[in-house]
Design a binder for these strands. Sequence first.
DNA 1: GCAATAGTGTCTTTAAGACATTATGTA
DNA 2: TACATAATGTCTTAAAGACACTATTGC
Lengths: 239, 239
Amino acid sequence: MQSEQEFLRHYDSSQFPSPIVTVDSVLFTLKDGALCVLLVKRANHPQQGYWGLPGGFIDMLRDDTIYQTAMRKIVEKTGVTPAYLEQLETFSGTERDPRGWSLTTAYFALIAYQNCQTQIDDVLDAKWWSVKQIPSIKEIAFDHQHIIEKAIHRLEQKTLYSMLPVYCLPDEFTLSELQTVIETILDKPIQRKSLVRRFDASGIFEETGKFAATGSRQAKIYRKMDNVDIQNFSRNLGE
Amino acid sequence: MQSEQEFLRHYDSSQFPSPIVTVDSVLFTLKDGALCVLLVKRANHPQQGYWGLPGGFIDMLRDDTIYQTAMRKIVEKTGVTPAYLEQLETFSGTERDPRGWSLTTAYFALIAYQNCQTQIDDVLDAKWWSVKQIPSIKEIAFDHQHIIEKAIHRLEQKTLYSMLPVYCLPDEFTLSELQTVIETILDKPIQRKSLVRRFDASGIFEETGKFAATGSRQAKIYRKMDNVDIQNFSRNLGE
DNA sequence: GCAATAGTGTCTTTAAGACATTATGTA
DNA sequence: TACATAATGTCTTAAAGACACTATTGC
């Protein structure tokens, strides 16, 4: 009977056929009052010239996990590090990529527009698209339209039962700004009182002591405390 | 400039290094009042003789998507078709498989013990393990222990806000049986009244007109209606 | 009738919805 | 002072928790 060491010495994974494996990310931000997704114009075949999600192949020498692949690709294509990155779902099949049987693990990510505005404006072939105009873009690569829809749905759901949208804001923000982000994601108004109650109950925010001048009464400026995670509420908002 | 057709004609994905890609499933059932996971004794290297999740390589000729890979592997290893199958998460890294950089998309599945008892008893190298004894099994392959933990957590969460546990029951069942499944998954009692309210509100169950003789008052026997999906409640139970 | 399990009634509790009210800044 | 936006108070509502109570069966 062969030992495992013996087996591994002779094992060559490249002799087995394998699907094309990629990692793609749906990066969201809030820009001009609209929820936006970053798309990159594809420089190479296949689907050259089409708009696609930032992503690409795993670099097995540099990436310890596909989380790192997702993060590396976002940094490479945009120059910025998202505030939040979470695995979404893995999409697969024979039809989704013309090169053949393929599999992509999609991530979704959040960033404050203020934290990436200049870097992304520098990248000519990267562009923020409002999620409302996405369905009208004909030249979206592969099944990325479908992936974006799934990501939007996940973001909406998490917005109903967590404070995740803070990651669309800069380090310091007012409650009204948070409310605006949430309402933009959900595409409907929410009760400020409900937000305040959750904000207080979460215990993850602290006052900076500063105030924002908004043209009328000044708003308290808060920040999320360091090293605290976003936890879930046991009910959904708005239903 | 090269056309996409030209590009695809010369494209050979096998010339690029690729991680080892597999699909694994965490199949749950309720057996002897305990939530159990199916593990299969590994016949081949690596980790020969260890207990692992039912799964394996994608067969690109037979599987249209990895969902089908997951389903096919469960059927091959157990002879039964799970009542429910959902993608869990994709796990990746250099360390998790001794053969090298690997990636596995994990699914989680539910089945009624009554619907698979005989088939699985026939399979000598497949065994149901109570989730409570899983941590004590030393010979679990790869990171499957970790994957099982994630699957248990997902199942618990979904049990708090949906009727998903019905898929652990046969087609016809009583409310008390459903309550028992839920309490076993959550490992704590729930209010029967709360269950009844959700059961009624869901609108996805119907009376069969039959009754179960339990030694005392007979219980109504229900079934899930055909072609209806499990929807989510906007609150969690038990908190 | 008694024990056991099935099923209902109803009061309490929790957290969100609605919206009026008060507070504080700028013009 | 008027106005705008920030922040709070408080009543209502929705759905879960608690638990008592009734119903039906086998013995």
